[in-house]
Amino acid sequence: MPPPCFSLLLRSTSTLSHHRPPFFLSSSSYNNLPRSAMEANLKGTEEPKKDQWRETCYKGASDVDPSKKVSDDILPHILNLYASRALPRDFEIYAPDASFEDPLMCAHGIKQIKSAFYSLSKVFSESRIVEYSIKENILPHGRREIVIDNKQYYKFMGKDIDMISLIKLYVENGKVVRHEDWWNKKPLWDRETCKVQLVGQIMEMTRRASMLATHAMMRFGKDPTK
């Protein structure tokens, strides 16, 4: 998401089986049973335990229903944020210590994320996501990754600007814990992605400074009043 200094740096780009109750036989009776009958009886007593074990594992892994798409709940709020019509409830998709990062800013916590998105209307007369496709991946420990391949539109000083972007959301317990916006689908520059670690550190510091300046200008994430 482009910040206030966008005008200087932005480049154009967009699921039991029903088992019969287990029955029990004496050891002598087992000896007289055909092998197939013995196996069937053992299977009938063991399968419910396996099903119960599977159910326990699913419950322990996550409180989120694996069959439900988390993106269905999150996407409408993301569209509001990028369309400069964010309301306080739109930020409820984020965990308290969530982070947001794009090539120009790095925000930590909901208040800084509010400042980042509330600033859009201060810079652009129009902004929105005009095209998008979504892919949702289930990660270990019940986490989700939502990838939004999209095209964003902005109007700045009467000029139309189209930008290709890749939004990556990492979700835990139904809340976004990290939000990345890759302009031109290029990974963010930091000490891990840059060949020269020092350059990556400088880029990180620059994004933090830009965020802090924007945060102050936007009254430290205070919700706007009508």
Rank of each mutant, 00 (worst) to 15 (best):
I138W: 08
K159P: 01
L79F: 02
F220C: 13
R178I: 00
F100N: 01
E39L: 12
R208D: 05
A209W: 04
L139H: 05
S121L: 07
S7T: 08
T206Q: 09
P34K: 07
Q112C: 03
V130T: 14
K168I: 03
S29I: 04
P96E: 14
Y170E: 00
L104P: 00
E136G: 09
D73C: 07
T45K: 14
E47G: 13
N31T: 07
D63F: 07
N137W: 04
G174M: 05
I148L: 12
E101R: 05
L198Q: 14
G221Y: 00
S84Y: 00
K43E: 14
N173Y: 03
K155V: 13
Y30L: 14
S28Q: 10
N184V: 02
E204T: 09
E92D: 15
T214N: 15
L10R: 02
K122L: 11
S121T: 06
S133P: 05
K50L: 14
M203D: 02
V147A: 12
M203T: 01
D51W: 06
K226F: 10
D72N: 12
V70P: 10
M1C: 13
H77S: 15
Y170N: 00
R219D: 13
H141K: 06
M211R: 02
D63R: 11
K69D: 14
K175E: 07
D190K: 00
D72S: 14
P96N: 09
L10H: 09
S62P: 10
I129A: 07
D63K: 12
L25I: 12
K114P: 08
P96V: 04
V147C: 07
T56V: 09
Y94Q: 07
I148A: 02
G174A: 07
A213W: 03
S27R: 09
T13M: 05
S210H: 12
I74T: 05
K186C: 01
I74R: 04
M1K: 02
E204V: 01
S133N: 13
Q52R: 13
I164W: 05
G44P: 02
S133T: 11
L9N: 03
N184T: 10
E180S: 12
W182C: 11
A116C: 15
M157T: 06
G109V: 06
E46T: 13
F100H: 09
V70C: 11
M205S: 15
F23H: 07
L120C: 13
H141V: 04
E180G: 02
R20D: 08
H18E: 14
E126S: 13
Y30F: 14
M163A: 09
H141W: 02
S7M: 07
L16N: 12
A37M: 12
F91D: 03
M218V: 05
M105L: 14
H179I: 08
S27M: 07
T193K: 01
H141N: 15
R35T: 11
Q197D: 09
E204P: 02
I148Y: 00
P187Y: 02
N31D: 13
F91L: 07
L87K: 15
T13Q: 11
D149M: 07
W53I: 10
A83P: 11
G221I: 01
E47V: 06
P140E: 05
V171G: 12
I113F: 02
I146Y: 06
E47C: 14
A107L: 01
E46A: 13
F124N: 06
G221Q: 03
G60H: 09
P224Y: 05
P140I: 01
I164S: 12
Q201S: 08
N31F: 05
Y94M: 05
